[in-house]
């Protein structure tokens, strides 16, 4: 029952653990009238406890490592993680910085990666759709 509700209307929570803001404004653009993901039932929620999908944009620096883990732990099962942007993939020039010690994948399990610097809103919507497919198939590999 709960699974069906999540598939029809996933609630997302966004956390930026050290990105450049570019992905964050594209995620914002997906929520606003042009792309309007609310018509698909996707709603942005402030608290991770309400959310089904965690959208992470950017690298995690040392300051945010434990926070990202805690936000993931606060979410109720079943939980899906979508990592947005090239930084989250662990590529790019920023990867060699002295503070960015870990990729998002090394801290929490990630189901879907959306590549791009930054990805377009269409790609982000597609990423969330694939995340729901991952959930439907019952496997945690995207």
């Amino acid at each position: 029952m709960a699974g069906k509700a999540i598939r029809r209307s996933p609630w997302i929570n966004h956390f930026n653990p050290g990105g450049c803001n570019g992905c964050a404004i594209e995620i914002l653009a997906t929520l606003t009238p042009r792309y309007d993901v609310e018509r698909l039932g996707i709603v942005l929620k402030g608290s991770p406890r309400h959310a089904d999908i965690l959208v992470v944009s950017g690298y995690a620096n040392r300051m945010n490592e434990t926070r990202l883990k805690r936000i993931y732990e606060q979410m109720s099962d079943p939980k899906i993680v979508v990592a947005i942007g090239r930084c989250a993939l662990g590529e790019g020039r920023l990867a060699k910085s002295y503070v960015l010690c870990k990729r998002v994948e090394e801290i929490i399990p990630v189901d879907v990666f959306v590549a791009g610097c930054p990805p377009t809103p269409e790609a982000i919507i597609e990423g969330i759709r694939r995340a729901l497919e991952v959930y439907k198939n019952g496997s945690k590999k995207g």
Partner: peptide
Amino acid sequence: GYVHRGMEKIFEGKGIDQGIYLCERICGL
């Protein structure tokens, strides 16, 4: 310090034309 990325250090030793690519990534806005 939650979004500190050590940008200034990443620039060091990079070519100048690479710098334009990198400095855009300081901020998305």
